[in-house]
Design a protein around this nucleic acid. Structure first.
Length: 825
RNA sequence: GCCGGAGUGGCGGAACAGGUAGACGCGCUGGUCUCAAAAACCAGUGGGGGCAACCCCGUGCCGGUUCGAGUCCGGCCUCCGGCACCA
């Protein structure tokens, strides 16, 4: 054995050996229990990043551990390979998106392979490959058949820089998620997936997601934004128009003093056309045009609006109230029309005060009496209903939940409804590098889906990339011109491609049978592997990717294609690697590449160090000097095995079976196995590594003190345990040391070591003696000391007596095996 | 504003069920080896006081419960993340 730890040679050697022996290839083994460990696949934007390492480390440790616990583990890797950066690169530098993408995949794959992750590379997939997107298209057609995909005219979020539409979820504070450009509203005909049809189930089924972080569930719950209330129909005075509104406060219907419409509401035009109000309404809309939807509806934007000249009739009391249009009313939520109750809604209150509209109190608080003129803000809490006809004196909660809704339903004025904040998922993108939406427009037959047998609709390779103007697919006559599958006449293809979140909404199922050519996936394989037992990824996907994937899974279940309704049983959201508390980014110039550290210290050191930085869910502060500590530790482990092998060649004195050294050695070994096992089970990889370090330090000390004790069963066991425990974290060095110890190939196929609880238990413990809760002495005693003996020891202790002298002992608290607290007065 | 999460040495972090605060690592200080340095190894390292034995203080702040609180409860402060005129 080489005295020096030559990580370069070792890592190269084993990378090759593992590949040659197909160590990580997986197949269905029905007799073995399975585990599916998946880390969110990356977008191949270039070489591996330190964030990738932090991510993929977690999945790899878990996969390696579970294999050795006897599970058949699926641990695949692939590429989320469609998307804008590739196309932007094409526009900037003329490289074809396909080449850009495949080159980056090669780079990233090389990086991941250097790190020694135990993926079954035979299952590699890329969403941009026709083998894959053919099935994305196939699934889209199933959605279309079920009415879950539809095309609609509407206002869409438009990013002028990316020149494409964005889903609501991709708009962050009014700006494009990718390029930070201010998002505009544009009227377009777009494809949507009807995720709102699944709002209720997406909400309900969260009950099942016991293995998800509460924070993610909360975020999804808020995003879906379920609210219960009533739809109430108002009539427009002197017109044959009825307009429903949504309210969560039917108990305040008697407090309505005006009525509001969203500025885009079609009724605004209808009501003002040809009236003296038309002009002012037009000016108001002009004023809003320069303002983005987001700014318009920001909390701190001042209330604004104009009167339409029309009056609405309140069904509950027949009152006529003025109809206004206001900036803060959203067309997309509810019905785009709102009843205004200024006394009990803060927004309406502000609006009323600004425009001098009446305020009428209909809910009185339990204490005190509200007077409209004196109010400085709306009263939104429950109270007693007043001025509400037959309901006077009723508790407002009772009115809101039962009495008023009952009245509305009896009289046919309205009904109970549920509203969601969630909108349908806009999937159209006016870009080239994505999955073509497989439909055709025929002048005769209209919109015709591409038949399954004609899939995939291939992306044409030969297209032009321009910064300005229509997308490459729109420009490509060759692509557009086609034949109607129904009438065989001339027709045109859809030129929109799909949002890349569609690709990633089902990739985890494809991994079960990545090469299946007859279907999107093989049912037997899916039944065996799915759902994903442990999903790992960034918190930034808390809403979009995870919600879309859940939606897809439910649709697939309803289509009878899968038999589970939630795709990810357990979810771990890992933190970012940061520097000086800030996210690493190209613009800050603080990007750390794994490459430089692998070259200097080796992949094992890098893996170990990042895991050691802190718990998975927390953000981790990078430190250049810290990594040397990890490297030092691996060197120590290496030299320990080297010295041990040396000790074995010496003539050693026989060691008595009951020697203290052997006892200490066994205890050290079994205690460490227990600690590391428990820590891995709860994802505390940082403390698991700390325990292995302590073990190493302990073995050094023992080897110094009693080298003879190592040429024994206990000595062998200790060294083997060290290597076996280290293997999931630092797979290369562990494999090499395992070979040196004469273990059979591979260390990664060895059963996980078991511990003996008897041996793991300490024989001696530190007994803590306290007086009034303050530690006054510690002493070593036998672990099985009785509580009575503990009390005796405490009361006999010189230091305890010093602190209790002259005082009355009120009570003695004994915590068996731990401490004694003597309480004095 | 609302909803999550977090505040512990010079630093990353540990303390998993209310019971030794600071494991492990980094950094720093001293030592061994060396002509010297590096590496390695050994010892020390929360703050204050004391010649010492020891004593006092200490987990964002204020208060509470308890024999005992980093951990539980109430009230604040700060930071991070999400949502944000959703009727």
């Amino acid at each position: 054995m080489n005295e020096r730890y030559d990580f370069k040679a070792i890592e190269e050697k084993w990378r090759r050996r593992w590949e040659e022996s197909d160590l990580y290839s997986t197949r269905e083994l029905p007799d073995l229990p399975k585990r599916y460990v998946l880390v969110m696949f990356p977008y191949p934007s270039g070489p591996a990043h330190i964030g990738h390492v932090a991510n993929y480390n977690l999945g790899d440790v878990l996969a390696r551990y579970l294999r050795r616990k006897g599970f058949n583990v699926l641990h695949p890797m692939g590429w989320d390979a469609f998307g804008l950066p590739a196309e932007n690169a094409a526009i900037r530098s003329g490289v074809h998106p396909a080449k850009y993408t495949w080159d980056n995949i090669a780079l990233l794959k090389e990086g991941l392979q250097r790190l020694g992750y135990s993926y079954d590379w035979g299952r590699e997939l890329a969403t941009c490959s026709p083998d894959y997107y053919r099935w994305t298209q196939w699934l889209f057609l199933r959605f279309l058949e079920k009415g879950l995909a539809y095309k609609a005219e509407g206002w869409a979020n438009w990013c002028p820089s990316c020149r494409t539409v964005l889903a609501n979820e991709q708009v962050i504070a009014g700006h494009c998620e990718r390029c930070d450009t201010l998002v505009e509203q544009k009227a377009l005909s777009q494809w949507f997936l009807r995720i709102t049809a699944y709002a209720e189930r997406l909400l309900e089924d969260m009950e099942e997601l016991k293995g998800w972080p509460e924070s993610v569930l909360t975020m999804q719950r808020n995003w879906i934004g379920r609210s219960e209330g009533c739809e109430v129909v108002f009539r427009i005075k002197d017109r044959d128009i009825e307009i429903p509104i949504f309210t969560t406060r039917p108990d305040t219907l008697w407090g309505v003093t005006f009525f509001l419409l969203a500025p885009e509401h079609p009724l605004v035009d209808e009501l003002t056309r040809g009236t003296p109000y038309a002009e002012e309404v037009a000016r108001f809309r002009e004023r809003l045009r320069g303002v983005s939807n987001i700014e318009r509806t920001a909390m701190d934007t001042e209330k604004d609006g104009v009167f339409t000249g029309a009056y609405a009739v309140n069904p509950v009391n027949g009152e006529e109230v003025p109809v206004w249009t206001a900036n803060f009313v959203l067309m997309e939520y509810g019905t785009g029309a709102v009843m205004a109750v200024p006394a009990h809604d803060q927004r309406d209150f502000e609006f009323a005060r600004k425009f001098g509209l009446p305020i009428r109190v209909v809910i009185q608080p339990p204490e005190g009496t509200l007077r409209a003129q004196e109010m400085t803000e709306a009263y939104v809490d429950p109270g007693v209903m007043v001025g509400c006809g037959d309901f006077d004196g009723m508790d407002s909660e009772e009115g809101k939940l039962h009495a008023v809704p009952d009245l509305l339903e009896e009289r046919g004025w309205g009904k109970r409804t549920v509203n969601y904040r969630l909108r349908d998922w806009l999937i159209s993108r006016q870009r080239y590098w994505g999955v073509p939406i497989p439909v055709v427009y025929c002048p005769e037959c209209g919109l015709v889906p591409v038949p399954d047998e004609d899939l995939p609709v291939l992306l044409p390779e030969d297209v032009e990339f321009e910064f300005e103007g229509p997308s490459p697919l729109e420009r490509s006559q060759e692509f557009r011109r086609t034949v109607c599958p129904r009438c065989e006449g001339e027709a045109e293809r859809e030129t929109d491609t799909m949002d890349t979140f569609v690709d990633s909404s089902w990739y985890y199922i494809r991994y079960a049978s990545p090469h299946c050519e007859e279907a999107a996936f093989d049912h037997e394989a899916v039944r065996y592997w799915l759902p994903v037992d442990q999903y790992i990824g960034g918190i930034e996907h808390a809403i979009m990717h995870l919600l879309y994937s859940r939606f897809f899974t439910k649709v697939l279940k309803d289509l009878g294609l899968v038999d589970f309704s939630e795709p990810f049983t357990n979810l771990l959201c890992q933190g970012m690697v940061v520097m000086g508390g800030a996210k690493m980014s190209k613009s800050k110039g603080n990007i750390i590449t794994p490459e430089q550290f692998i070259d200097t210290y080796g992949a094992d050191t890098l893996r170990l160090f990042i895991l050691f930085l802190g718990p998975p869910e927390a953000d981790k502060e990078w430190s250049d000097s810290g990594i040397e500590g990890a490297h030092r530790f691996l060197n120590r482990a290496w030299r320990l095995v080297y010295r041990y092998l040396d000790v074995l060649t010496l003539k050693t004195q026989p060691v008595p079976r009951d020697s203290e050294a052997l006892k200490r050695l066994s205890h050290l070994t079994h205690r460490t196995i227990r600690k590391v096992t428990e820590d891995i089970e709860r994802f505390a990889f940082n403390t698991a590594i700390a325990a292995i370090m302590e073990f190493t330090n302990g073995l050094y000390r023992e080897m110094e003190a009693a080298p003879d004790a190592f040429n024994t069963y206990e000595g062998h066991e200790a060294l083997r345990a060290l290597v076996l425990l280290l293997a999931p974290f630092a797979p290369f060095i562990a494999e090499e040391l395992w070979e040196e110890l004469g273990g059979e190939y591979s260390v990664h196929a060895q059963p996980w070591p078991e511990y003996d609880p008897q041996l793991a238990r300490a024989e001696r413990i530190t007994l803590v003696l306290q007086v009034n809760g303050k530690v006054r002495e510690r002493m070593e005693v036998d672990a099985d000391v009785s509580p009575e003996a503990m009390e005796e020891i405490a009361l006999a202790s010189r230091r305890v007596r010093e602190h209790t002298a002259g005082k009355e002992i009120a009570k003695v608290v004994v915590v068996p095996g731990k401490l004694v607290n003597v309480v004095v007065r």
